[in-house]
Structures are given as structure tokens and as C-alpha cells.
Design a protein around this nucleic acid. Sequence first.
DNA 1: TTGCGTGCAAAGGTTTTGCATGGCA
DNA 2: TGCCATGCAAAACCTTTGCACGCAA
Lengths: 153, 153
Amino acid sequence: MQDNSSGQPYRTRQRTAVLTYFRRHPSAHVTAEELSDALRAEGTPVGKSTVYRALDKLCEAGIIRRFSIPGSDSACYQYAGGDTETCHAHFHLKCLCCGSLYHVECEQLDALTAHLGARHDFSVDYAKTVLYGTCAPCRRALAATAGDGKNKD
Amino acid sequence: MQDNSSGQPYRTRQRTAVLTYFRRHPSAHVTAEELSDALRAEGTPVGKSTVYRALDKLCEAGIIRRFSIPGSDSACYQYAGGDTETCHAHFHLKCLCCGSLYHVECEQLDALTAHLGARHDFSVDYAKTVLYGTCAPCRRALAATAGDGKNKD
DNA sequence: TTGCGTGCAAAGGTTTTGCATGGCA
DNA sequence: TGCCATGCAAAACCTTTGCACGCAA
């Protein structure tokens, strides 16, 4: 359980391809299979095992972030900016309807953080927290189809 | 996607056992396997398939809630109080260190909700949102052991 | 009696691991 | 050259599904 990253990682084509993908799609959220598929489409095919291993390493390094989407079996990964420090002050909003991922960064969240820390003695880990809900486009779409039947979810 | 619970559910021993477990352990968070194991230990063994089916039904009914714990492959379930209406106005705080689940209910969250709705046009689903972080006891424990080596996570 | 609920086993999917080979330093 | 990284295949894992039987209503 000690630090197994003592040996410095080699800069291989596959590893570069994965990292490049996330840098080119900073707000994209992809599954391991989607990533493998995207890399293949970009001309740099990477084996699925390697994709998982690279994802794991990048997660440990804090370069990308892993989400669990309710209702989905596969995990989702997203670029974290490479600098964990810059990503500590915003939440992620995920639409359960269309799957879009939004970044929210404002003093309202700072207030919540301060409140949770001061009053509830709880230190929120923004990196692992995702607020689930419904985004505006989906809300409108749902409202448009709400008149034709039961919609209690 | 329509209401498939048209047939009223039967009150079986297994179903009762699952529900009873959650009512007797309102703040417990268990995986499907842990629940199956606990029920067996309590003298009412329930098949794993049945556990999954019961969990699924109870989730649909809003009686229990399903979580995805970062770093774990299996889903976690917890009692929701049986009344979904009372559970719409508070967040859940889960400690990644000890697994404790806290309920937070204050106007700070109302302010956040209003803000997200007004400024970011996003409707948060409190029932599916969990804030991850570290609770006070664990923070103290981590602080106490922070001096003896690397602890960069 | 009717038909849902149950349990076993097998299938389904995602993720991990073993081992031989290839490529970076 | 040494050693990590890669990729294929198989395993391990959680979860769902099919089917025959049992039990609630």
C-alpha cells in the first residue's frame, strides 16, 4: 500500500493520446469504452486494458476525475484541469436527463462550504461531489410533455 | 415507462425482512451483499436475486435510496424514511473516511437551491445528490496522523 | 385458484489481472 | 540494457434475467 509510483512513468503514445483527449475536451465526460472508441476514431487506438490503467493513473494523479452516474453501470471520467488546486472551489452539476455536466463556481458555494464547515463540521470534497438534477433544456422538454400523463418522478 | 406497479405487491416474509431491516437501521448504509448477509444472520435468509429485486422496488417507491460510493464497485442503499416528501429539502453528507451519512437541512441549502435555479437554471434533485467529504471525527483523526509520513490524498 | 414472489443458475456487463511482447529512457 | 507499458484473453466482480416452484390474496 505504499507509493507505487516511485518509478517515473514513461511517455508513451497511448498515454499521451489519453491525456491529449482530455485536454482537447476539458468539459467532456466519457466512459472508458467511449474514450477507447474516441481514441480509435482519432487514429490512435488504445487497448481497453490500457485505457483503464491510464484512467486509473490519471485519477490517482488528480488530472482527471471519476464519476458514478446513477442509472448507469459504467463510470464516467472528466478532465480536472491538471491542477487540483484550481478545482476545489466549484461543484459539478449533472443532468440526469441528458447527461450534460456543468461547472458552477460562485460565492454561493463558498457560503455553503463555510456553513458546512462552521456549523456542521463537515469538509466537503468538491472533487468527488456531483449535484444531480435537471438542466434547463430538459426541464422545458419535460414541462412540454408533462400534460399527457403521469409524471411523478 | 408507464406505471408497472399496477399489481399490488404481496406482503411476503422476504419483503418484510428487507423493509424491517431498513426500519431497524435507519442510518445504516449497506450493499446488496451486506444486506443479504445481514438478513441471513438475523434468521431470515433472502436470496440475492430477491434482495436486488426488493431493493429495486423500494428504490422506485422512494422508501430507500441508492448511493454510489467513489472507490467502490457495489451500490449502497439506505433507508429514506418512507416519505419522499420530507426528504426533498435537505442534502446528504457522506463521509468518505468512515462512511457516516449525515442529513443537513438549513436555509443555506435553500439559498443554494434558489441560486442554482435562478442563476444557473438548474433544478437540483436532492434525493439523488450526496455531498462527499470528511466529517469532524475523521478530520481530527487524519490531522493526528498527518505528521508521520506522506498523506497527499 | 390466480398470479406475483422467490430462488437457483446462467447470462449480461464493466473492470481487473496474467503473461508475453514492445518501446521509452 | 533494464524496466515499465501495452494488448490480448481470461478471470473476477456486481447485477440482471429465465424458469419452475411456492406462497399470499
